[in-house]
Amino acid sequence: MDIFKTEEVTKQFANHLALNKVSIQVPQGQIFGLLGPNGAGKTTLIRIINQITAPDSGSVWFKGRPLNANDVYNIGYLPEERGLYKKMKVGDQAIYLAQLKGLSRPEAIKKLKFWFDKFDLLPWWNKKVEELSKGMQQKIQFIVTILHEPELLIFDEPFSGFDPINANLLKQEILNLKSKGSTIIFSTHNMASVEAVCDHIALINKSQKILDGSVAQIKQDFKLHQFECSYLGEFSDIDRLASDNFSILEHNENPEYKYFKVELHNNYSNNEFLSLLMQKVTIRSFNEVIPSMDDIFIRVVQNDATNPIETV
């Protein structure tokens, strides 16, 4: 079931079209990556989800019905541009933000104490925010985002500015939240983090959605039938096999290690290729090259510059 979806959402600003008929579906309980280059329209879409702005046309659905004002209590949002009141005390501030999300004061305090304890922030409760390190401030921002236990969480570039230790802590917490049943929308252009955590993605470029689907499926779709092979023997023997069915993309030799990369054409199967190859050299390993999300991202975005592509 989709916890959230948009249908043909369009948003026009004075001098540019921020979103052009964008439809996305976010399956419940999954981590959904919202990808795209800077300026593609991700933040506008996220602001529409948070009801900070409204779409010019198209519809927005949450839990099977049109999104309404009370849904903010069920959504947690960690914006890319995030900050806190510098002169306010940490505890007071966290309580304030929690109250705005609909928690009562005692409830907010109880939950905050739990999370502050978990992140070793309790000694800082009565300190002013400006006395805290950037990493600590970000932990606090994370806590207030998830404190009201929303069903849908939106993280816009969550890892930017986190040191590796805290980034890892954050990743663990996000996975924890998923296992507890939260749905997470994850906006980023950091593809490594997408591969690590996302189940589904949608790719937005120049105000349009140009690709979406499950990460596994997309990777299948974008395979190029390329293989990497390391072997024992002479490369010249392999080279002699050359035909229309495959082309050698690169090869590399040194005393301990010989390797080449090949792309198969015309539905030539890897088994056929292997049986051919076995006659000439000893095969040490043979792997299919799975495209990284990074590669897919670049390919799709560059392709989009010339012609939009339809995918399943």
Binding site: N50, Y77, R82, G83, Q141
Partner: peptide, 16 residues
């Protein structure tokens, strides 16, 4: 201006 330069504004207006 403080809320704007602090960047806390977006957090708050996602709630109110």
């Amino acid at each position: 201006i403080e809320e704007k330069t602090n960047r806390i504004i977006e957090v708050i207006i996602s709630s109110v």
